[in-house]
């Protein structure tokens, strides 16, 4: 074919090609996700923002008024301010689940674009890294905008609330990594509906997002402790209330951080293994 490049550095020249750095490989793959987002972002904005904003209005404002009237708020602050970090983390979780179920299945199985990526000089680790970078940025952006909206309604009392953005990303990744693992091992999409309805909804409702876990029956409380959402919310709430390290709870923040990180690391390890098994058969 004509018009081939003159530069000997070009990767179009026959012979051994210049290897790609990890950054180049990731960036090339990120380009795919961004191109796809250009087509789909409108629908996403509606579905991903509407839910948290509706919950903000219903819980924070509607029920909040009832709570404040009866109990004078929760943990010494108006209920709206108490619940905002919970909603931020719960929506980060839902966003994470949305990104790591059907879309992953599409790329694995339906359009097999992951396989197309792996026909290029990339490896499974690059494929996962690129996808997770895109998901993380989406969640960072989404939670940032939501925190700003909540602030307009008087739901945020401290600039420390901005820490909610990285915490939301970490919490989301604590779901994304294990769910990618699950998605790579499943062949049946009905499992996703089950996860959504029978796992994610109860997690959202019973992980200290809308009321302190101490309100739960005693036997249910340890269940909350193992969920990433509870750790994310516990980590974020003191920051939203103006005291990120929450001295009242000692090294609690470090434990939350460690648990969330463990979810990401173990989930990432499993996802990598499962992806290799599935895509490099």
């Amino acid at each position: 074919m004509s018009a081939l490049p003159e530069s000997p550095r070009s990767r179009l020249v026959h012979g051994e090609r210049r290897p790609l750095s990890a950054v180049e490989r990731t960036w090339g793959l990120v380009g795919f996700h961004l191109t796809l987002l250009r087509r789909t972002w409108r629908g996403l904005v509606v579905s991903r923002f509407l839910t948290p904003v509706l919950f903000l209005a219903a819980m924070g404002i509607g029920i909040g008024r009832l709570v404040d009237r009866s109990s004078g708020g929760v943990a010494g602050v108006p209920y709206l301010q108490y619940v905002v970090p919970g909603i931020v983390m719960a929506s980060a979780m839902q966003w994470a689940v949305g990104e790591s179920t059907w879309p992953v299945m599409t790329l694995i199985k339906w359009n097999q674009m992951y396989a197309a990526m792996l026909a290029a000089p990339t490896r499974v680790a690059d494929v996962l890294r690129a996808h997770w970078v895109v998901v993380s940025f989406g969640i960072a952006w989404g939670s940032g905008v939501f925190i700003a909206i909540a602030a307009l309604f008087g739901g945020v009392r401290s600039w420390w609330a901005l820490l909610g953005v990285p915490i939301a990303v970490l919490t989301a990744m604590a779901f994304v990594a294990p769910l990618f693992w699950f998605a790579a091992r499943t062949d049946n999409e009905e499992g996703f509906t089950t996860i959504f309805r029978l796992v994610i909804t109860p997690l959202m409702l019973f992980s200290g997002t809308f009321f302190p876990v101490s309100q739960l029956p005693i036997w249910l409380q340890p269940v909350a402790w193992v969920t990433p959402l509870w750790h994310g919310t516990e980590l974020a709430r003191p920051a939203f209330l103006g005291d990120p390290l929450d001295p009242g709870h000692g090294a609690g923040w470090a434990i939350h951080l460690a648990v969330l990180t463990a979810y990401v690391v173990v989930g990432g390890w499993g996802a990598h293994r499962a992806f290799r098994a599935r895509l490099e058969a």
Binding site: I63, L66, V67, S70, S71, V74, Y79, T201, P202, L205, F206, F210, F211, Q215, L216
Partner: peptide, 17 residues
């Protein structure tokens, strides 16, 4: 789930309506 979470859990803070 909603009944137990919002109705019962959060309800402990709302008390009556």
């Amino acid at each position: 789930f909603y009944l137990f979470s919002i109705g019962v859990g959060l309800g402990a803070l709302v008390k009556t309506v």
